[in-house]
Design a protein around this nucleic acid. Structure first.
Length: 508
RNA sequence: CGCGGGGUGGAGCAGCCAGGUAGCUCGCGAGGCUCAUAACCUCGAGGUCACAGGUUCAAAUCCUGUCCCCGCAACCA
């Protein structure tokens, strides 16, 4: 048994959750659930990034203090994730002075002690209207493209993290210890490294960034996002404090699940920070792509933004449908598309027809004229189940979620074909019980395979099948044992329960 | 010469890293079945795998070049 520590990026409390946030949480949740089901000890962490200038600005616009804004936003995210069935163990917030700040402050001190930080003055072209810096090439005729004013030259003091000199070390670390998944995403990172890295600004003067963690020993400066937000991955387990749980870092497989937009920060800045703080590197970086909408980038001006709430409303709040869509449609690491047509199509073809209908026809047949008694014995379908378990396992362990779902669905197809070719509705007596019991057993295996992806549906299936373990399936300590994976492996399972429609037709 | 991804039957995608009868979902056509949520099963039509060269007994798959589409381009989470 191994120990798995899995994290997602923490969400910025500036705006409402969108499909990108949801996709990432679902991906990580499927992995976390799989780790638990295969018997690993798991700690799954998500959270909120609640500092920064944008939070200050948004709060001001809404007539709130930054603190009030983040207090408002955190429950919005937590509520949504709860409905989506995200099974996190820890929810970190960067405004948490007890849980988060001590690690951050100690980390900063260590970076400074190790000589990785340096205070410099930073000169740039600042547009008062935009409240931001521009580089010369961003300007149009020397003017801000938005306000058409000439930016002022502003000089400010910043702490810099000396990342530039870490290039060679990072090349080695990324080749050996800290793996990027999928591999194609690693190319990008290596090409960045080949061109050499620059030092990064790690703080801002308090006058321009107030809402954040003060730099220890230099109260006139506020930490910029890197040292604050990235550090959540170790503050959540208390590293660098007196309540550290180092077993979750040093003696665990650490996986960061993040989007491709922030891959470079996680692949470059984060390991360099850890090195200077004397903390070992994480094990892997699982990078996912972005979601387009109807083939185009989601954008407010195109008006094709799809909100998670909208999708949930479309399926009466059944989050499993969204979980299934994202897991099935978006290959891990690639960009994917959200299309309503495809969403409905998949709902009908896979969930409603192939899966739901199969369960229904098996249960109805099995109970016709009897109490639904089972007699599971050796059967022609059992080698197929065994084979699909093997490919399912291999796929799940390699984060190839689509292939794993494919394994489960191919069992459904086998089931439907078997009923048809053997005309099971014409069978009577013992033969009927024997054949249909095999179909019920097949569905039991399907339900177990679906458990990480669509947990509530898997449990509903198990309840209809009247499985003894059905009520325990969603518990975090529920493990899929070898017996459960074996054909006829549940000895005290004697009969099936009442059939019930798993996925009703949409729009009615 | 900024970086990266992509161009495969009507639509959306997999296959490419480790060359060897081109696969999946939806749609379409014909038939079957009637247990089931008008669901299920079988068969079929439809592709010069962007284009041009090259390597090879053999290329969607490796190499070179061209065209087109899409992201990113650093303090914008």
């Amino acid at each position: 048994m191994s120990r798995q520590y899995i994290t997602t990026a923490i969400d910025y409390a500036n705006a409402s959750p969108h499909m990108g946030h949801v996709m990432e949480k679902i991906l990580a949740d499927v992995c976390a659930r799989w780790f638990r089901l295969r018997g690993d000890e798991v700690r799954f962490q998500i959270g909120m990034d609640e500092h920064g200038i944008k939070i200050q600005e948004t709060a001001a616009k809404q007539g709130l203090t930054p603190a009030a804004l983040v207090e408002k936003m955190a429950p919005v995210y937590r509520d949504l994730y709860g409905r989506l069935g995200i099974s996190e163990d820890v929810f970190v917030r960067t405004t948490d002075r007890d849980a988060h700040w001590p690690t951050v402050i100690e980390l900063w001190k260590r970076l400074e002690t190790s000589g990785a930080l340096e205070k410099r003055s930073y000169a740039g072209l600042y547009c008062v209207g935009c409240e931001r810096f521009y580089t010369a090439k961003d300007l149009v005729d020397g003017k801000c493209p938005l306000h058409l004013t000439v930016p002022q030259e502003v000089k400010e003091e910043n702490w810099f993290f000396l990342l530039g000199r870490e290039t060679a070390w990072l090349q080695e670390a990324l080749a050996k210890e800290y793996r990027i998944i999928p591999e194609q995403r690693a190319h990008e990172t290596f090409s960045l490294l080949d061109r050499g890295l620059e030092d990064v600004s790690f703080s801002r003067p308090r006058s321009s960034l107030e809402w954040g963690i003060p730099v220890p020993g230099d109260e006139g400066q506020t930490m910029y996002v890197w040292c604050d937000a990235l550090t959540n991955y170790i503050s959540g387990i208390g590293l660098l404090t007196d309540h550290a749980q180092p077993e979750w870092w040093d003696d665990a497989t650490v996986t960061h699940v993040i989007g491709k937009d922030i891959a470079r920060f996680h692949a470059l800045i984060w390991p360099a920070m850890l090195k200077h703080a004397g903390v070992t590197l994480p094990d892997r970086l699982l990078i996912h792509g972005f979601l387009t909408s109807e083939g185009q980038k989601m954008s407010k001006s195109i008006g094709n933004v799809v909100s998670p709430e909208e999708v949930l409303a479309h399926v009466d709040g059944n989050a499993d449908v969204l979980r299934f869509y994202l897991s099935h449609e978006i290959p891990v690491g690639n960009d994917g598309d959200f299309s309503w047509k495809r969403f409905d199509e998949l709902y009908d073809a896979k969930l409603r027809n192939q899966l739901g209908n199969l369960l229904n026809r098996v249960l109805v047949l099995l109970r016709k004229g009897t109490e639904g008694e089972l007699a599971i014995g050796p059967h022609a379908l059992s080698p197929d189940v065994e084979r699909q378990w093997t490919s399912y396992r291999t796929a799940m362990d390699a984060f190839e979620l689509q292939d794993a779902l494919q394994a489960a669905w191919s069992l459904c197809v086998s089931g439907n074909v078997f009923i048809d070719t053997h005309k099971l509705w014409t069978k009577k007596g013992e033969e009927k019980t024997k054949e249909l019991s095999a179909l019920a057993e097949l569905l039991r295996h399907v339900s177990l395979m679906l458990l990480p992806f669509i947990p509530r549906t898997a449990q509903r299936m198990a309840r209809q099948l009247h499985l003894p373990y059905a009520d325990r399936m969603l518990a975090k300590d529920f493990v899929i044992t070898d017996e459960m994976k074996a054909w006829g492996g549940v000895a005290d399972w004697k009969r099936v329960g009442e059939p019930e429609i798993l996925f009703p037709p949409l729009g009615k």
